[in-house]
């Protein structure tokens, strides 16, 4: 199974929640906090469960989510 890390840029996030609604693992949620623009932002509650499917980054209208793929080497 692929393993990923969603890197969420909270300053870009507008808190629309499209990523949260489309995450197949339900590991994204809205933070109980706001960024410097006054918007709620998405956080990942359990990175170990991310399967690097890319659904969140595809849906994000603000390109706030980058996905890093973890690979075992050696």
């Amino acid at each position: 199974m692929k393993q990923g890390i969603p890197e969420i840029d909270k300053e870009r996030c507008k808190g629309c929640g499209l990523c949260i609604a489309n995450c197949p693992k339900n590991i994204l949620e809205m933070a109980n906090d706001i960024n410097s623009f006054g918007a709620y932002y998405t956080i990942c509650s359990d990175e170990s469960q991310c399967i690097a499917c890319g659904a969140c980054s595809l849906m994000c209208p603000d390109a706030a989510i980058e996905i890093i793929l973890k690979r075992e080497v050696g």
Binding site: S57, A63, I65, E66, I67, I68, L69, R71
Partner: peptide
Amino acid sequence: STQNLHMYRRPEALLNVR
């Protein structure tokens, strides 16, 4: 060991503005 690489990156042509 683990090696990390970007699977998805913000496209370069998108300016870094809100």
